[in-house]
Amino acid sequence: MILEAAAISKSYGSLPVLKEVSLGLERGEICGLIGPNGAGKSTLFRIVLGLVRSDSGQVYLDSQARKPLGGIIEKPALYGYLSAVENLRVFARVQGMRLSRPEARDLLEQVGLPIDRHDPVRNYSMGMKQRLGLAIALLNAPGCLVLDEPFTGLDPIGIRDLRELVRQLAVERQIGILISSHNLSELGDLCDRLYVLHKGEIRHSGPTREILRRATLKYQLYGRGFLGSPTLSEAGEPLSDTSALISPGPHSIESLLARVAAEPGVGLSACIPQLDLALLLEKQPV
């Protein structure tokens, strides 16, 4: 593992924020940390990034690099009065890197930012700031990235683009990426594994599909001829002839869908799992 947090605990005064939280991250892996607001995600990330001291527990980094870990906490913090290139060069210089202007422009291109803008970054959109924040986090080629709520404030296209960029970094550069969100759907198709954090405790962890399955009791189906389907009337209440909300119950969704598809006069066009974070937050052994 390139990053491992072991039994991290932290309290603010008498208020416990993290209780023996452990997690790990492999090289090239994207790991999600999901939890509602106030779960302790940012505190955990701050501890992992060395900004906050834990009361107990350890963070292990398997890297001899000068910068083993890059990160963004909440929104990217930039010098608003400097241009993107100047921001990159300032952040490079503070860690002893001499970044030439062409090198800085290369970095901007890698994160999909325009290289012909010289205006202060306070004029940039949130998506552009996130990209610049990523470029800064990537300075000095860290082996892993810790991104806290990177999708906050982005529009759907921004979210899609950023997800693509993150995936690309993991696949092409073999960077381990730890990413947090309070929105399960943002992480669902991005992460290899998920940790569910609630009230300072890890409630679930495992491969994303398993976690998603646990978080899904119902599926929204779209198609035609639903009113005449006996399988659908068993599994849920058909809302109309073209859409239905179903609970597979003891059956797997795969077998249920196969049965529906085999019924004459019924056509399926989409099946959307209805993710319910609340389901994951119930206390049960990890």
Binding site: K67, Y79, Q95, G133
Partner: peptide, 18 residues
């Protein structure tokens, strides 16, 4: 205010030096 203290300390920069 701009949280750039945090951003700089996310780089390999010691608090003492900062």
């Amino acid at each position: 205010q701009d949280r750039t203290v945090e951003a700089v300390l996310l780089q390999p920069v010691s608090k003492l030096k900062f």
